[in-house]
Design a binder for these strands. Structure first.
Lengths: 222, 222
DNA sequence: GCAAAAGTGTTCCAGATACACCCATGT
DNA sequence: ACATGGGTGTATCTGGAACACTTTTGC
């Protein structure tokens, strides 16, 4: 079976920059390429867009195939189409980025063993194609959005402390935040609420647990 | 001649939302479609991406073919790929938007007569495909960028008055600006400079003419 | 009792906002 | 002289930044 057209057509893929935060580091999901080009090289998860799915559906499908997670935050980043970005064929990639809460990052067993792994964003291996460029742009977008949206809440598990949330901000922004100003600012958004429960977590005072008010919604601030 | 692939491929186009400002209205360039689907309907200029050009090159080429202008500000907006956005074939469109200075908006004579026209953004006809959606998103992006960049300067001719620049802001934001605060803010950016010339322009005091310091650069503010 | 994270307010500064009158020109 | 857009400064408000000590627990 083959599909024929009057003019040459590029192939269209989606690539997904999957972020999570674990152990106070920003992590990124990569897969090891099984086929040429860049065989054996690490790359962003992604694949061809099917005829009957939207671009976002394609990205969500790739994400679920690699990680088993669904329903997480997913946003279109940019479309990359330099003619030589793939050495063999003309491939246009619509890149998305996804944020996975830290309590849902267990990779599905289905993903064949060692071919899928989390990497610290500061310790990435060499990446295939222009994927390092895509990953950098995704990080810039994410850091920018911290300032004018509630996007960081997408990383949080069901219950979390303000200290944990602050660590998320500090990890992405690579800068310490003032504790009192941070709490004032976050609580003023009214995007999270105290649960009333506390978490005892070592030799110190227990912390109040919070939850996100509307977990789906990413509000724009100001 | 025909081009064959093992899997079906979408066609990839670029569409360009071309803005200008004339007579204190935000205007948008549309072309009348000669072929089906949506024959006779107004649409954004655009066309297929050639095998050897980048996406931005494709957008710039389409823009120059329709308007004769080149070298203007051009930025990728978003990529639209709903499976049914074109009723006949799967077409993925990488949308750009362009800003044309008001002294360069004469359409090339080559564009066959009445098939290319400027429309006021508030008086758009029905548009083909999802082009009304694309145009709305482009306007939102443009309005947002006024607040944190010097993008509005891309609309200005070589020499202009502060009153004219203020009109540009008011037109895009659809809101009056305070004259004194506007001038203070703009001049503090140091993105424009007085030329020393004045323009006599009617029964009132002549206005100082300014020019953009670095016409290529769009600076991010704050 | 001591180590370790949680929790809590006030002062200060900078940038945004509100606001009204005189100036130079053409008719 | 009058109509028209050009040009200018100050007081106020608001949101962000800096900053240190007490509380509660486990060991």
């Amino acid at each position: 079976m083959s599909y024929c057209y009057d003019y040459p057509r590029p192939a269209v893929t989606t690539d997904v920059v999957v972020f999570t935060i674990r152990e106070e580091t920003l992590q990124l999901l990569l897969i090891k390429r099984a086929a040429a080009p860049y065989q054996g090289c690490w790359a962003l998860p992604g694949g061809f867009v099917e005829p009957d799915e939207s671009l976002e559906q394609a990205a969500a499908r790739e994400l679920e195939e690699e990680t088993g997670v669904a329903g997480v935050y997913l946003e279109q980043l940019y479309t990359y189409g330099a003619p030589d970005r793939d050495p063999r064929d003309r491939i246009i990639s619509v890149a998305y980025y996804a944020l996975v809460p830290s309590d849902r990052l267990q990779l599905r067993a289905a993903s064949d063993a060692e071919d899928v792994r989390w990497f610290g964003f500061d310790a990435l291996p060499a990446l295939a194609f222009d994927h390092d460029h895509i990953a950098r742009m995704a990080h810039e977008r994410l850091a920018a959005k911290l300032d004018y949206s509630t996007i960081a809440l997408q990383f949080m598990p069901e219950r979390f402390t303000l200290g944990e949330l602050q660590e998320v901000y500090e990890t992405i922004l690579r800068a310490p935040q003032d504790k009192r100003n941070f709490r004032k600012r976050i609580l003023a958004l009214e995007a999270i609420e105290a649960t009333g429960e506390r978490r005892r977590n070592g030799a110190h005072r227990p912390a109040m647990l919070y939850r996100v008010r509307d977990p789906q919604r990413v509000a724009i601030i100001k």
